[in-house]
Design a binder for these strands. Structure first.
Length: 696
RNA sequence: GCCCGCUUAGCUCAGUGGUAGAGCACGCGCUUCACACGCGCGGGGCCGAAGGUUCGAGUCCUUCAGCGGGCACCA
């Protein structure tokens, strides 16, 4: 027999996967008893045109270990794959390409043509992630693959929307939203990032009507004063007690604005008097509502000043306007001082443009109501069970306890269009289909809302929609829901995990998953977060090429939920481990004539050699350790047990001690029995290794 | 401001009240018939600091420091 002395991972990787897939090994219908207990996982759907990064590889490895392990234990196991349309992210990529290649914007070619281009892009670049997932060896059931824009999943989205609307959980109306002036769309609070920034704090004086007195307010955004409709002070602040109810003259503009008292104001901060701009600040918006203040919009959707800002400001960029306002105050002798100040600025999570808070008519979901039951679940039953429990259970609970309305609509074209139609009079009809809307309206002349839904709206349904919801009789839904575990990164606990719990509890009356496993973050060797802009990312495919998929998987599995600095040395050591396995097998196979795999443990153990009985004892102990470790998500312990069992016990001791028994040239029943035992131990060890190292 | 995590060998990290561990790196010796991606031997640690509980603390408690994360506020 000719067996190479060095394991060549690529050969195994190339041949095994296509066979597994061809034979349907990953479908729950194959190799499992319909009556067996169920184990199911819905994969976090990667962006359809995305490509694999280390975070995916980590999550995928954990899920594959769990899936393969449970499948081998006889569970009716489903790991369901799919991809996400990734609304804003995909749209921006296609817009960029259109601009670069044809110099056109999406508006130049129109909605229909643009969407055709996005689908074209999806056809062209989609599929890469699936190929990469095959490379990773993932045992997902491709026959059940889903895409968030598939007709069935789109139907689920409409169902979710309509039901919530009918119950009053979804409404349309003006509200304070995060507006991205570059992407020209509203964004939810979870799609923007706060960054601290060095800036200035301007102290502006507002004259009191009919008096020489002036009130000083501090602001980081002087340009918004053009839209001020009040100044607020604390009701407990004695300095301003006599001013409450009096009128101020807003400089430059000349508008008369009241001084109002509100608990929101902290008398200790700044001057204790706050300018109130209800149209351009979330806190001021709320305060304005409490006091019935006017909303004067002075900044538009392009972050430029409106006509209401006054003729000399109209059309100016917000930062140009800022300078000009400050100059004016200086001229008027009303600029008290300017101080250096560090404050935080809100940026678009996608394009980094500075967000403008605006009042805008959008669709909102009353998240606090949908979150009430999930909050009860986590508080009363600790469902779902977070791994690691600290700090994630508390982080999740705190989030659910402080929910506010979710801005659902996006001024984009790629995504699920809002199932709302308007008649000529502007009446709104929310319906599952245009036909239903027409029936409601009693006429055909309807126009659908142009906006699409936040990508996470469809993601929120993922565990149920992929299994067949809203068809509640769907066999998959009945069998595989709730899912066993959700494996994901910590940064989407709010965006995604909490919302899947909301829909699961609302529509199925049950948690979406038993456990939530949060993976660690992988940093570069200097402890820096891997990012495209820093170009310090490590491509999992390069690591696969260099050391093999199995070796990489073992490293990822042992990383698990720990934050780690990536180090090729670890992968190299498991590459060596794979080679050790290869050579142990090589030895066994070179001495396998007369041996029977799988029948090595027949006969009376009392008559075996001492080392045979010892290794079987160690094998069984290792199997128990691996099972306990995998079932408690302690993957590093399973890896440790396997590594030392295989290398120290099996190779260093057992094979060495067996050599004299198995290497005899002449066949004897004793020699063949010994050979059978050796090769059976090997075969059992390979089974234990399989969830981690499926290719070798 | 509130909450959480981490701090153990040169590096990356395990460690579940009972004599400090692994991989890599390092030193010495081995072309030993499965494997030099290997084999054998070896050096290297007041387990972040200070208190406390305990017969006994890397492990439990308190305080502090450094690093990291989340939330709130940021006029």
């Amino acid at each position: 027999m000719d067996i190479p002395k060095t394991y060549e991972p690529k050969k195994a990787e190339e041949s095994h996967y296509s066979r597994w897939e061809r034979e349907g090994c990953f479908a729950p219908e194959v190799n499992s008893d319909p009556a067996a207990p169920v184990y199911s996982i819905a994969i976090p759907p990667p962006n359809v045109t995305g490509s694999l990064h280390m975070g995916h590889a980590l999550q995928h490895t954990i899920m594959d270990v769990l899936t393969r392990y449970h499948r081998m234990r006889g569970f009716r196991t489903l790991w369901l794959p799919g991809t996400d349309h990734a609304g804003i992210s995909t749209q921006i990529m296609v817009e960029r390409k259109l601009k670069k290649e044809e110099g056109k914007s999406r508006h130049d070619i129109g909605r229909e043509e643009f969407l055709r281009r996005v689908w074209e892009w999806k056809e062209q670049y989609g599929g890469e992630i699936q190929r990469q997932m095959r490379r990773e060896g993932l045992s997902v059931d491709w026959s059940r693959e889903q895409f968030t824009m598939d007709e069935h999943l789109s139907r689920a989205v409409r169902e979710f929307f309509v039901r919530c609307y009918d119950e009053g959980l979804i409404y349309r109306g003006p509200g304070m939203i995060n507006w991205c002036p570059k992407d020209q769309t509203a964004l939810s609070d979870l799609e923007v990032d706060k960054e601290s920034q060095a800036g200035k704090l301007y102290y502006l004086q507002y004259p009191v009507k009919g008096s020489e007195r002036r009130v000083t307010v501090a602001t980081t955004r002087p340009e918004t004063m053009l839209g001020d409709t009040a100044v607020a002070v604390s009701p407990k602040d004695e300095r301003y007690a006599d001013l409450i109810g009096q009128t101020l003259i807003l400089p430059i503009v000349g508008r008369e604005i009241p001084v109002v008292a509100d608990e929101f104001v902290d008398p200790e901060f700044g001057t204790g008097a706050v300018k109130v701009t209800p149209a351009h600040d979330p806190n001021d918006y709320a305060l304005g509502k409490r006091h019935g203040l006017a909303q004067v919009t002075v900044i538009d959707q392009h972050a430029r000043m409106t006509a209401e800002a006054g003729a000399e400001f109209e059309g100016l960029d917000r930062y140009e306007a800022r300078e000009k306002v400050v100059e004016k105050f200086e001229e008027l002798g009303l600029l008290e001082k300017v101080a250096d100040y560090e404050f935080s600025i809100t940026k678009c999570g996608r394009c980094r443009a500075v967000i403008e808070p605006l009042i805008s008519t959008q669709w909102f979901l009353k998240q606090a109501e949908l979150g009430r039951e999930p909050l009860r679940f986590i508080r009363e039953k600790h469902e779902p069970h977070f791994v690691p429990e600290n700090p994630y259970e508390k982080v999740y609970e705190n989030w659910l306890a402080g929910l506010y309305d979710w801005t659902l609509s996006r001024q984009l074209w790629w995504g699920h269009r809002i199932p709302a139609w308007y008649d000529a009079a502007g009446h709104v009809y929310v319906a599952r289909t245009v036909e239903d809307a027409r029936a409601q309206a009693g006429g055909d002349e309807l126009e659908q809302d142009p906006d699409v839904l936040d990508t996470w709206f469809s993601s929120a349904l993922w565990p149920i929609s992929t299994l067949g919801w809203p068809d509640e009789e769907s066999p998959d839904l009945k069998t595989f829901y709730p899912t066993s575990v959700l494996v994901t990164a910590r940064d989407i606990i709010f965006l995604w995990v909490s919302r899947m719990m909301m829909t699961g509890v609302k529509f199925m009356g049950e948690k979406a998953f038993d456990d939530v496993y949060i993976t660690g973050t992988i940093f570069d060797r200097h402890g820096q977060r891997m990012s495209k802009t820093k170009a310090n990312g490590i491509d999992p495919l390069d690591v696969f090429d260099k050391f093999g998929v199995d070796a990489t998987r073992v490293v990822l599995a042992s990383i698990g939920s720990t934050d780690t600095r990536w180090n090729d040395n670890q992968v190299e050591s498991y590459r060596n481990f794979a080679n050790k396995i290869w050579n142990a097998a090589r030895f066994c196979l070179l001495n396998s004539e007369g041996a029977q795999v799988g029948r090595g443990f027949e006969g009376e153990p009392e008559r075996w050699a001492l080392h045979d009985r010892w290794i079987v004892s160690r094998l069984h102990k290792t199997a128990r350790e691996v099972a306990a470790a995998v079932e408690s998500y302690q993957f590093h312990e399973a890896v440790y047990a396997l590594y030392h069992f295989f290398w120290d016990d099996f190779c260093d001791w057992y094979i060495e001690l067996s050599k004299s028994d198995v290497t005899a040239a002449d066949p004897t029943p004793e020699r063949d029995a010994a050979r059978s035992r050796v090769i059976t131990v090997l075969e059992q060890a390979l089974r234990l290794l399989h969830p981690f190292m499926p290719f070798i």
